[in-house]
Design a protein around this nucleic acid. Structure first.
Lengths: 258, 258
DNA sequence: GAGTGGTCTAGACCACTGA
DNA sequence: CAGTGGTCTAGACCACTCG
């Protein structure tokens, strides 16, 4: 792999000497990078199987163990999913079992129920400066703004305002959003080829303003959770900014620390 | 290790046949369990080095690779910390660099500053029923309750109410809390031998009541983040319940999703 | 230089899946 | 049954730390 002589063991670290003064990078890291590139180039699509470890090992001219270590890390980063006996698959948001992978809201009682979605708005506009900055766009670039409400057992609980780079989401309409079954990020994958890899959230407590109060069917001034999410795709490129208001009367945001 | 013949490779899986109908458990999992037991028994204390991989391998009669895999997982679970060239160490809260490992509050500007602590109260009492339930205590067991305020740059930001099982925290006083330099969990480790391994948080938005408003120097009714944390030690045994109120005017709770 | 963790290989065998 | 990932071993060598 990567300009390495075809010989065996000792060659692995020889790469170090080839270059000027590069940071040393283990083989399995380089393999990781190559695999991510293939994912990025959609050589294998979400939900599909990638080549077997043995095949990848022979392709990259390294041992199976090295490929294993690379895949192991990609699996713990949730980019890949291993299934014993079947293969290794590209992770996807478009599956039932991983629904709401990014939604940390849980009913106080315990059992998570399905959500009803209602799309209030979907329009294209020039990005406000704060949005543009967060999404790494030039001022004046167009963004798609989506506004929606999530309800559980008939009660509105979440009000989301979502901004997406217009460049990447050409042809996104309220109709498409409404028609699609499954999580929104699934639609983004299949329709626009945009995969959300990870996200950073900033959480605050705020008082409901008039508009939020009406849409969430609560009194103005009610304390709400404000969740600002920046979603990133490969190479940590930001592709979604989302501002959510959560009514936490009968739900809570759960988090695990370790 | 574990009733295994001293022979080499094929013996590893023989354990499967030894027992009735046990769930198959890989060797490295069993090693993990043994290491955790030693941690639990304080055979190695927080901050200390555990034996080298080679030594553990010979002790458990397995290969170094198997020990490595066990330690790898314990390291990603933050029970151990690897330091190349030096050894593997028992993770600890009593260190500068991991201060606030469990406090996800960040100033909006960016730079995290040191916190000033002020202890308002530290008393022993019979556990209220909800506290007892959460901590897995019998009704009527005594708990230690601590109330404190954290300030940043002179402004009060966090009001914490903390409940601890009285059984485990004999002799905990406001004075000890005030005197101790470093994070509270560091004191718990060194003074009481209680190690916080992981925690679950439930987050809500609430309105400040009179008492909280005064202590946090804000108007009554201000929206606050309510963070209820249940901290667990080995074997997922709950050892702390904490109810925090965070003023998020100039700070936010940050979270990473993946 | 000795001792530690980190990387890499090669090969054996086990567990699971699906044709 | 063949093919996949999962476990385990043994041995070599590299990178880092510290005396």
């Amino acid at each position: 792999m990567v300009a390495s002589p075809p010989s065996s063991n000792p060659a692995a670290h020889a790469r170090l000497a080839d270059l000027d003064a590069p940071a040393f990078s283990p083989l399995y890291q380089q393999i990781k990078t190559l695999i991510v590139r293939s994912l990025q180039a959609a050589e294998w699509k979400p939900g599909e199987a990638i080549p077997s470890e043995i095949e990848l090992a022979s392709r990259f001219k390294v041992s199976q163990g090295t490929v294993r270590k690379a895949i192991d890390e990609l699996a713990t980063e949730n980019l890949l999913v291993r299934r014993q006996g079947k293969g290794t698959f590209v992770a996807t948001h478009a599956e039932q079992n991983v629904q709401f992978r990014f939604l940390r809201l849980t009913p106080d009682g315990g059992e998570a129920a399905g959500a009803q979605r209602r799309f209030i708005d979907c329009r294209r506009l020039r990005a406000p400066s704060d949005i543009a900055r967060a999404l790494n766009l030039k001022p004046g670039d167009t963004v798609v703004q989506v506004r929606r409400v999530l309800s559980f057992r008939g009660s509105p609980v979440v009000l989301d305002d979502i901004w997406l780079p217009g460049q990447l989401f050409k042809g996104l309409t309220a109709e498409k959003l409404s028609e699609y079954r499954g999580p929104m990020y699934g639609l983004f994958e299949t329709e626009f080829g945009v995969r959300m890899i990870r996200a950073e959230e900033k959480i605050r407590a705020v008082a409901a303003d008039d508009g939020a109060a009406q849409l969430l069917d609560i009194a103005m001034g009610t304390a709400l959770l404000s969740v600002e999410r920046l979603s990133l795709t490969y190479d940590d490129k930001p592709v979604e900014l989302r501002r959510g208001l959560y009514n936490t009367m009968s739900h809570h945001y759960r988090n695990e620390l370790s």
